[in-house]
Each structure stands twice: as C-alpha cells, then as structure tokens.
Design a protein around this nucleic acid. Structure first.
Length: 225
DNA sequence: TTCCAGGCAATAC
DNA sequence: GTATTGCATGGA
C-alpha cells in the first residue's frame, strides 16, 4: 500500500509550514508550505508552529488552519512566551477561521504552558495529560515536531483501512497504530510519508459520503471476505 | 441549504 | 467501557 501511494503521489513534504523551501503543486488543498524530500528536524520556531497547527487542525480543514496560523504569525504569537502573554480575546480573534475558537484558545494556552517548561522531548503520556491533546494530536506532535517514530492514526486512515476490510469501524486507535508499528520498521521518515500519503489519497477518494465507488488504486490490495 | 473537515472532552447510559 | 453530544468556521 505504501509503495502504491508513494508511486502515485510522490513524497509529500509534511508537516506543512508557513515558511518553507520548495513546493509540491500536485497536492490537493493548499499549494504552499510543503517541503518534499527534506527530512531534517524542524527549527525551534518550526517545532512550535507544528504543535500549534496540530491542535488547530482538529476536525478542521487545513486551509482554515493556515489562515489562523497566518494571523498568529502577524501578531507575533507563533512564539511560546508571546502566546502565553496574549489575552484570550487576542488569541480567539486570530484563530477564529480555524473554528472552535474558544476551546482551541484554551487548548493552545494549556499546551504552551507545558511547552515552555520543556527541556527535552515530551513523552506520549505527558502530552496526553494536557487538556485538549488526544492520541492523534500527541502522535502528530511526536512524529513531526520531535521526530519520534510513532504512527499517526486519523479518521482518514481508519476510513481507508475499513474500506479495505483490514479493520472494522470501531477498532481502537491504539490497535490500528499497533498494526503499523508491527508491520513496518519504526522509521520516522517512512511514518511521516505514509501518514501524509494516506491523507492525500483519502482527500481525493474518501470524502465521507460516497466513498467506495471512486477508488481503484488500492483495490488491487483489497482482501475479500 | 446541507454537508464536510488531518478531534477532543464532557456527559449519559 | 461504549455511545452521544457540543464545540465553530468556511468551502463545496
């Protein structure tokens, strides 16, 4: 499946950043922010931006997240100290395009308070104790901001695997994650690409309603029941 | 107008 | 433990 997707779509260059070196014009959604084939660790500035983006994109279209990130950057709030110091009202105004702006303002502030005390890579359990950080957000932060080899499971991943009869709908997050962890070497770049490729494929063929008719790419690996 | 988007916490059983 | 509900904006 990974090889099929990689051959079809090429390297994805996640996590998308406001400042970047290179573009991938074949992508759906945003055309900017991606940096295919560049796998170096993010700078400290970029690391914080990734964490903020991971929270803002919860159940939200990335285009709207980009608008919020842009507003935060214009207000110099893509900085842990400045974001902590900013009023709730200021943050709410910036992130309004990303939706759930009251809840997400609290999430950003609770995460940032933790982030400011960090002098090392956080553990998954530490992240999960923060209000507003669940399994997917924690794993996105670990994989893309800190290059820890954990697989990110999202709604798209589950939808594709369910369609391929590999899992059923109510399979738990950790179980799906364990499938990837046991089937593939724990390699950061591979996990980054694989997750991004699944999202790209799902955006093209697995919108919530009609999926099933549109796909053909992965049908060749689909097990029959 | 209605549905959807890279979840999560609170609440109800 | 599992199921449901509120949270909010902008685009298709």
């Amino acid at each position: 499946m990974y090889d099929l997707l990689y051959t079809a779509y090429g390297p994805q260059g996640w996590w998308p950043l406001l400042e970047h070196h290179g573009t991938n014009p074949t992508k759906t959604g945003s055309m900017r922010g991606y940096h295919p084939r560049q796998y170096q660790k993010p700078s400290h500035k970029q690391r914080f931006e990734i964490c903020i983006g991971a929270i803002l994109t919860q159940n939200t279209n990335w285009i709207n997240v980009e608008r919020a990130l842009h507003n935060l950057q214009q207000s110099r709030l893509l900085d842990a100290d400045n974001l902590s110091a900013a009023s709730e009202q200021t943050v709410q105004k910036c992130i309004k395009p990303a939706g759930y702006f009251r809840q997400k303002t609290r999430k950003l502030k609770e995460f940032t308070a933790f982030y400011k005390t960090l002098r090392r890579t956080p553990t998954r359990d530490e992240l999960l104790t923060i209000w507003g950080i669940g399994p997917e957000t924690a794993d996105s932060i670990l994989l893309y901001a800190y290059h820890v080899p954990v697989f990110v499971v999202d709604a798209y991943t589950k939808r594709i695997l369910n369609h391929l009869n590999i899992i059923d709908k109510n399979t738990s997050y950790e179980h799906v994650q364990a499938l990837f962890h046991t089937q593939f070497p724990k390699e950061v770049h591979t996990y980054q690409e694989y997750h991004a490729l699944l999202v790209e494929h799902a955006k093209r063929h697995y919108s919530r309603k009609p999926f099933g008719k549109a796909d053909s790419l992965l049908d060749q690996i689909k097990p029959r029941r």
